[in-house]
Computed example of a mutant assay.
Amino acid sequence: MNQTAAFIYAHPDDETFLSGCLIRQLADRGAKPILLLATKGDAGKKNGSLQQATNEELAAVRVKEMDKAAHILGLSLVEHLGYPDGKLNTVPTEAAVEAILAFINTHQPENVFTFGEDGGNGHPDHIAISKLTTSAATSGRCPSVRRLFYVASETLLTQGLSPAISVDTEPNWAVKAAALRAHDSQMLAIERYFGSLASFPEHRRYESFVLAWEQGIWFPPVTGEASKSVPK
């Protein structure tokens, strides 16, 4: 397997929260997972010694944390657009879509992963990166992209959609936990979501994704072909 899979999210740590085990599986199976982040997380929570840090100082810390997590997960590369954290919905849409198109066309992924339209939890940055990535991936201007996946959310599931990919984190929980710990500046938020990290919380056990678009068709029926190049 030599396919490239692009994960396009808003903040450092989104990749591990939502898809850390999927990324590690892809890397272990010979694929090339890559990551594009819209922001450097400069408006994130400031824990411990970082409480007095400026946004610029926090951004520098989070980029280094991201590099450490990327190594743990097996990401082939990480790029940051550097847009302001918490204000992604104010970024000029056309310029942001062009930046995502440039990333996609440089690295030629077949599969693209991002948030659903609701951002998963309603976060404005998550919603914004979903809209921007969807516009780019389905524009017809990036011919390598065959499929767009959305992180499964209650909104999508209550619409009757079923995950095309569902990864059990139990076998690779130690890897995911290590990558989460790499994002040390955000540990309070991480522990609120996952607990102590000693073991996976049952309600966070699976990383699941809905097939949103495949070669021009929105929310197609999921078949074996739909997920052939990504592990289920």
Rank of each mutant, 00 (worst) to 15 (best):
M1P: 13
A5R: 07
A5K: 10
A6G: 10
F7V: 01
D14C: 12
D14N: 11
E15Y: 04
L22M: 13
I23H: 10
R24A: 15
G30T: 09
P33Q: 10
L35V: 02
L35D: 00
L37P: 06
G41F: 06
D42A: 15
G44C: 07
K46L: 07
K46D: 01
G48K: 10
S49Q: 09
S49Y: 03
S49C: 01
Q52E: 08
Q52N: 12
A53F: 12
A53M: 01
A53S: 13
T54C: 08
T54V: 07
N55G: 15
E56L: 11
E56I: 03
E57K: 07
L58E: 01
A59V: 02
A60K: 10
V63M: 08
K64V: 01
K64H: 09
E65P: 02
M66G: 09
D67V: 01
K68Y: 03
A69C: 04
L75R: 05
V78G: 02
E79T: 04
E79W: 01
H80A: 01
L81S: 03
G86C: 07
N89H: 15
V91T: 09
V91W: 02
P92V: 08
A95I: 05
E98V: 10
A102Q: 14
F103W: 08
T106P: 04
T106F: 02
N111P: 00
F113M: 10
E117R: 14
G119W: 04
H123G: 09
H123V: 01
A128G: 07
L132K: 14
L132G: 08
T134H: 12
T134D: 01
S139G: 13
R141D: 00
C142T: 13
S144K: 11
S144G: 07
V145E: 00
L148Y: 05
Y150C: 05
V151L: 14
V151Y: 06
S153M: 08
E154P: 02
E154A: 13
L156D: 00
L157T: 10
L157C: 06
Q159R: 15
Q159C: 12
S162D: 00
P163Q: 11
A164F: 11
I165D: 01
I165V: 15
S166Y: 02
S166R: 15
S166V: 01
D168T: 02
D168C: 06
E170S: 13
A174N: 11
A174L: 11
V175D: 00
V175T: 15
K176T: 06
K176D: 03
A177Q: 06
A177H: 10
A179V: 04
A179G: 13
R181C: 11
A182E: 01
A182F: 06
L188A: 14
L188C: 00
R192I: 10
Y193L: 14
G195C: 12
G195M: 12
S196Q: 02
L197G: 09
A198S: 15
S199M: 11
F209G: 06
V210Q: 05
L211H: 13
A212V: 03
W213N: 07
G216E: 00
I217H: 14
I217A: 14
W218A: 08
W218V: 00
P220H: 09
P220D: 04
P221T: 13
P221K: 14
G224P: 08
G224A: 13
E225H: 14
A226L: 07
A226Y: 08
K228G: 11
K228Q: 13
S229T: 14
S229L: 12
K232N: 15
